[in-house]
Nucleic acid binder design. Structure first.
Length: 387
DNA sequence: TCTGGGGTCCTAGGACCC
DNA sequence: TCTGGGGTCCTAGGACCC
């Protein structure tokens, strides 16, 4: 039988928009949309007043402004979000440590907390005597000290907690056992499950499974047959909400990338008639330099360089190469990226270009030789995914 | 409504070695 | 004359998440 867990999913409400409201209180209560202003930009975050107009994340900005012409549009400010995020999760981590929610890491005890994005995290509260009271106090403290409102879902598993925190936003505080969740979520569409995206939802719908209750009637053998070993057995466990993956308080970044979508597709150079317009190569050089700089800043050295190309018809290619040695050398990384680009540039107009560095030293060493604890940066828990 | 930019994870297949 | 089985490393594509 599985170990008892008390997992909280904590998620900041309209995080980016709230960060801007804290800087400029006159924005409060108004429809705020964070996102770019170019013809191809999309909505990153909408404040709750903007959401009432039907504006949502990942929606083209043009459409968002048609739905809500009075919205205040604010360009994203990554540094602001990173700074605010760090304050929130440091506070949460300190409170967890203080209350005894401790994870024994290789380098000593740390808070039992897994950051799952810039604005969300999972906490294991099983070691805390009165977890709900603790959590209410913590959420109040975070709001008081940072201005950020956290929504919370609390359950025996991260999957149920994650779904729960979304049920009553903003300022949700939803506590469910597995049985209660099964009952409450039975009629909900499968798309509320994180991990079931548009493609899987469509495949399942064609098989006659649209809700969680539908899925409980699915034959596990059929799911395995249709979705393969790994995803099939996962789906079978989703059906009875028994998916249970322990928290991973220490995670290591696996790649650093930079990409850019052009405002208009960039076609072949009219002067030469070949597919080698200077702006494209210059863009590759620029992004390779950014990636190298970001790696150096974090003391990461990688040996896999990749270039990503999306053409006007939305087809996407990646071309990668593995270097003989790990490197953080900007000139070397740039040269490899340019070489890949020159070798593989398509004749079609280009919509997007990207450069990625991966296969980092410490990650590989860690995966290949368990027990080798060197190569870590300080305080890994606070230097997570989206920083 | 024509779809950003930062990531992670999984799968499949080929090359190569024993 | 046609040919195994396992393991590792690598590339490419795609689904998905925030």
């Amino acid at each position: 039988m599985a170990v008892r867990r008390v997992i909280a999913h904590l998620d900041a409400d309209a995080f980016y928009a709230t960060c801007h409201e804290l800087l400029d209180p006159s924005l409060r209560g108004r429809p705020v949309i964070v996102g770019g202003s170019g013809p191809r930009s999309i909505v990153t975050t909408a404040s709750y007043p903007a959401r009432r107009f039907g504006v949502g994340s990942a929606m083209p900005m043009s459409r968002a402004l048609r739905l809500c012409p009075g919205a205040v549009v604010i360009p994203p400010d990554r540094e602001l979000y990173t700074t605010t995020s760090r304050r929130v999760w440091e506070l949460v981590g300190a409170a967890l440590l203080d209350a005894g929610a401790v994870y024994e890491g290789e380098d000593g005890p740390i808070a039992h907390l897994e950051q799952a994005g810039i604005d969300e995290a999972y906490a294991e509260l099983v070691q805390i005597e009165k977890p709900l009271a603790f959590l209410r106090g913590l959420i109040a403290d975070v709001r008081e000290q940072t201005g950020i409102q956290l929504s919370a879902g609390i359950s025996p598993s991260r999957l149920i907690s994650k779904i729960s925190s979304d049920l009553e936003k903003p300022a949700a505080f939803v506590v469910l056992s597995r049985e209660q969740a099964l009952e409450r979520l039975a009629g909900r569409p499968l798309s509320i499950v994180p991990g079931i995206g548009p493609k899987a939802a469509e495949t399942l719908a064609q098989l006659g499974f649209r809700t969680l209750a539908d899925l409980t009637r699915a034959d596990p053998a059929m799911l395995l047959q249709t979705f393969g070993e790994s995803r099939g057995s996962w789906l079978a466990q989703v059906a009875d909400l028994s998916v249970d993956v322990p928290l991973q308080p220490v995670r290591r970044r696996k790649s650093i990338s930079s990409e850019h979508t052009f405002e208009e597709d960039v076609g072949p150079d009219p002067a030469t008639g070949t597919g080698a317009p200077a702006p494209l190569r210059e863009q590759i050089e620029k992004m390779a330099a950014e990636v190298a700089e970001a790696a150096r800043r974090r003391s990461f050295r990688g040996r896999n360089v990749a270039v990503k190309i999306r053409t006007g018809d939305w087809r996407t290619y990646t071309r990668a190469t593995t270097l003989p040695d790990y490197t953080d050398d900007a000139a070397l990384i740039t040269a490899e990226a340019v070489r890949l680009w020159e070798q593989h540039r398509p004749p079609e107009p280009v919509r997007l270009l990207g450069v990625r560095l991966g296969a980092f030293e410490h990650v590989e060493r860690h995966e290949r030789a368990a027990g080798d604890a060197s190569g870590d940066d300080a305080s890994p828990q606070l230097r997570l995914a989206l920083e």
